[in-house]
Design a protein around this nucleic acid. Structure first.
Lengths: 341, 341
DNA sequence: CTGAAAGCGCTTACAG
DNA sequence: CTGAAAGCGCTTACAG
């Protein structure tokens, strides 16, 4: 055994404690951890036994310092005031944390100064706590991707980087397909005309969803004059816009919306006319938020957990996803799109 | 100046780079960072200038290793399937991240194996990534507090630790006061009778909220027979319970609920009777979720951001809050508790 | 007030 | 297959 090291009771065991307990040098313990193939089978087993017995876990800071890598990625978080209904980004944060390949990488949430977001990224990177980033909520003229590219910082994005079509390190949910599928579902359910309630033209996400509707209408040979309406993300405006839309729709009609909030306005407008959502007028939302669940609203559901897993894959094993990934959303069907009830 | 160190372009500057640029030893740079009072004013300024010029940020892993402290705390996160409506805990995670005293501490979200949660805490602590934890969602017979206490691991809790009344390191929101305030608001608004829709007796949180209602009813001298109903956290059951409750309430009545979901059931029940929420029957929910905002539901709002700030205070500067902190919720008033509209 | 020394817990060539 | 050496970037006594 050689000489025992005096271990302070309660202090966490180090690699040296394991080494002396197993009667080997600390390099051998490190090899057991990092290069088990280079260690003789019986040594391996003996060391492993001591690791388990002592409950040894490598000190991550020491590993990070020595390896010159954090094996961690940063994810920007903003105060709740900035958030929209649905909390998709909160959910993504949670799923990223849950699906981190914990033995090799973890996630670090950080909150940059809103006045200089890029400085927050620079600082977090410089602290050595992360090797790169997971981006979300990429906007047009977003300053983050160019900065990251210029400084050769690894990153993936949840959501297309619309400005930089040459970029392929992203995973996104196919809004076009989601809305298109919703229109098909409504027609299958017996509605004969489908209108669209979306945001004003100009946002890439909104325009993509609107095209999903217009393409579906065309391919199904629906009334080509089926109207679309636009509203900002506000419940009262959405109700007004939906009321106008209803005035231009015939009987047996349905409305597909670009968000659950817009759909809530549509539900209200339907009720204001004395009609029943579902039975009289179909309504479908987007994001499958709590509100949709509570209101019995059929809604397009984004596979957020899957997006998080793919983001990790792209970061940790880039060869596995050489191109971008566009996920198919699913449709959570509730009473608002069922004629019989 | 002495000799220049050759710096790889693009590599992050270290304390040694700053030292040679400023013509001092690296210990002096460290003193500038950690004990500026021990450094001569002109040296301080010269070193500080080089720190800014080079954009130097200390390597956190190296500090953690040397100081034998992570200056970080862990926060447990669970997959979204486990979450309830409202996402209060997601919001708390975000607010904890945002309000971290970033120069001295940061938050690390981690996801323990659901089959052995305590092992996840042990592992995270042993890795040296955190010094302690922020607990949330403490349950009765929660195994985490006893384990943390036994191993002398620092922690604070968002939510009382009901099992361990001797524990004082928690911040919580006063549900009793929230419901009591809601009853007062309803009476001020002109409702003459107030019923309560809560969960079945036995949960500490639910019982606390119910007592807020019964105490308010007593102190306001309201109809002492004002009834309470119970329902589990399910929209259909809540609707049924609310319908029964309405049958036992007179005109000009209102219903206070233990959650927004229960309140949604109450809204439904009111409409099913052909009555108008607010104008005919007042309804108040709890948690001020997205659903409440979307439905025009008055709801008790928890000051989550403030709770997060206090949790950090308790961790970083325990003297500031020697006892537990019970925060007063506010009431977000919407149409469902207004008679005139 | 400033700097030389030691060391935090690991990993990575490299020599034996 | 195993171990002695060097070093990642810092901080903390301590000597000058």
């Amino acid at each position: 055994m050689g000489e025992e090291t005096t271990t302070v009771p309660g202090a966490r065991p180090t690699i040296v404690d394991v080494a002396s307990a197993a009667g080997v040098s600390r390099q051998t313990v490190s090899n057991v951890l990092n290069r088990p193939d280079r260690v003789a089978p019986d040594t391996l087993e003996r060391v492993q036994r001591e690791i388990d017995r002592l409950g040894f876990t490598p000190h991550v800071s020491a590993q990070q310092l020595r390896r010159k890598r954090a094996w961690a990625y940063g994810f920007e978080v903003n105060p709740s005031g900035h958030r929209r209904m649905g909390h998709i980004l909160d959910e993504f944060l949670v799923e990223l944390t849950v699906s981190a390949p914990s033995h090799t990488s973890h996630l670090l949430a950080f909150a940059p100064d809103p006045d200089d977001v890029v400085a927050g990224y620079r600082q977090t990177l410089a602290s050595g706590l992360v090797d790169g980033f997971v981006l979300a909520d990429t906007r047009q003229s977003d300053p983050r991707p160019p900065w990251l590219i210029e400084h050769e910082v690894p990153f993936v994005s949840f959501g297309r980087v619309w400005d930089l079509p040459e970029l392929t390190r992203w995973v996104d949910v196919d809004g076009h397909a989601g809305v298109r599928g919703a229109v098909h579902h409504l027609v299958d359910a017996g509605y004969r005309q489908v209108g669209f309630l979306g945001w004003p033209a100009g946002s890439p996400v909104g325009d993509d969803r609107r095209r999903g509707w217009s393409d579906a209408v065309a391919e199904l040979g629906l009334d080509a004059s089926a109207p679309a309406a636009a509203s900002v993300q506000d419940i009262d405006e959405a109700t007004d816009a939906a009321e106008q839309l209803l005035g231009r729709l015939g009987p047996d009609a349905a409305i597909v919306c670009a968000s659950d909030l817009l759909a809530l306005g549509a539900l209200r407008a339907v009720r204001n006319r004395g009609l029943r959502p579902g039975a009289d007028i179909g309504v479908v939302g987007f994001d499958d938020t709590d509100v949709a669940a509570a209101m019995g609203l059929t809604s397009v559901h984004q596979p957020v957990a899957e997006a998080a897993r793919i983001a990790w894959d792209m970061l940790v094993d880039p060869a596995r996803h050489p191109g971008p990934v566009l996920l198919e959303p699913t449709l959570t069907i509730r009473a608002s799109s069922l004629r019989e009830d």
